[in-house]
């Protein structure tokens, strides 16, 4: 088992004829992901990577069963692409694009949630169920199948943590990069229940960052509901207040989003917080033994 995606998931790629979309769609297919169709408005009726290209998600969805869509559309049109997928009835929408205007996301996230569709991202690396399905831009080979579910606000750091867990022989089930922006479709506390219910996942690693209060919300859920051990990590602990370090969401404003607040919340929830990547592995090992 895993969460959200597996080897049978049928995937649509929005922006499949663009540079990023074409590159990553090819990588996903190589990994084993079942890419069944693509969408590029204006290029309907053509083929890309041996799959049919449609003008709209609606047309693609009328010809294929689609379990998930992944979006590589440039920022000015990205929120619209996510809305299009949600309105066409795609249940899982993964928005990779970075630099989307915030108000576009405020509007889109609300509407997509009202449609009952799960949106991951934007500005995220996507998700992967190890050795089954890659719906994202991560290097697939570093994820070895195992016991740990991961949720992360960062990309590279996730790859590194997953690689360390894989190298240690522990491995991962599904790894979800939720994105580094202030407004995202899915947060930690939305995914924890899914891992709670996945029998293959024996522990969860939560890679947080400074900024916002998603880690605190997750800690509150863990304290009352989580049946499995959770290990946390918080990036940006030394970042000066008010400075944006790459991720728009990783910023301390006023008294919100400080590492102290997050550390305190995890302490209350009994979640150990690793200082280094290697320590993530040690803490998971300790929890699983």
């Amino acid at each position: 088992m895993s969460i959200l995606i597996n080897k049978d998931s049928k995937v649509l790629v929005q922006g499949i004829t663009g540079r990023e979309g074409a590159f990553h769609a090819e990588q996903m297919i190589k990994y084993g992901t079942k890419v069944v169709a693509g969408v590029t408005p204006g290029k309907g009726g053509t083929q890309a990577l041996a799959v049919p290209v449609y003008d709209s998600v609606k047309e693609a969805a009328s010809k294929h069963k689609i379990d998930a869509s992944i979006i590589f559309v440039p920022a000015p049109a990205a929120a619209d692409a996510a809305l299009e997928a949600a309105h066409a009835g795609v249940p899982l929408v993964v928005l990779i694009t970075e630099g989307i205007p915030t108000m576009d996301m405020v509007k889109a996230v609300k509407e997509i949630k009202e449609l009952g569709v799960r949106l991951i991202g934007g500005n995220c690396p996507g998700l992967i169920t190890a050795e089954e399905c890659k719906l994202g831009i991560m290097p697939g080979h570093v994820f070895k199948r195992g016991k740990v579910g991961m949720i992360s606000r960062s990309g590279t750091l996730t790859y590194e943590s997953a690689a360390a867990l894989s190298d240690a022989g522990i491995g991962v089930t599904t790894v979800v990069g939720i994105g580094g922006d202030p407004i995202i479709g899915t947060t930690f506390k939305d995914l924890l229940p899914l891992f709670n219910d996945d029998p293959e996942t024996k522990a969860v690693v939560l890679c947080g960052e400074i900024g916002g209060s998603d880690e605190e919300d997750a800690a509150a859920y863990i304290k009352t509901h989580m049946k499995k051990p959770v290990v946390a990590f918080i990036g940006g602990r030394s970042a000066p207040k008010g400075k944006r370090m790459g991720h728009a969401g990783a910023i301390i404003s006023g008294n919100v989003g400080t590492p102290e607040s997050k550390l305190a919340a995890f302490a209350v929830a009994g979640v150990p917080v690793a200082d280094t990547i290697n320590q993530i592995v040690d803490l998971v090992k300790a929890k699983l033994s």
Binding site: S152, S154, T158, G236, S238, A239, P240, G246, I277
Partner: peptide
């Protein structure tokens, strides 16, 4: 982002670079 120390930091990915700053401070 210009900071006020002496160790220049270069990395790939915002999360990894933030982590690297944390390590240098640590």
């Amino acid at each position: 982002v210009k900071l006020d120390g002496q160790v220049g930091v270069i990395g790939n990915g915002a999360g990894l670079v933030m982590y690297t700053l944390d390590l240098v401070n640590r």
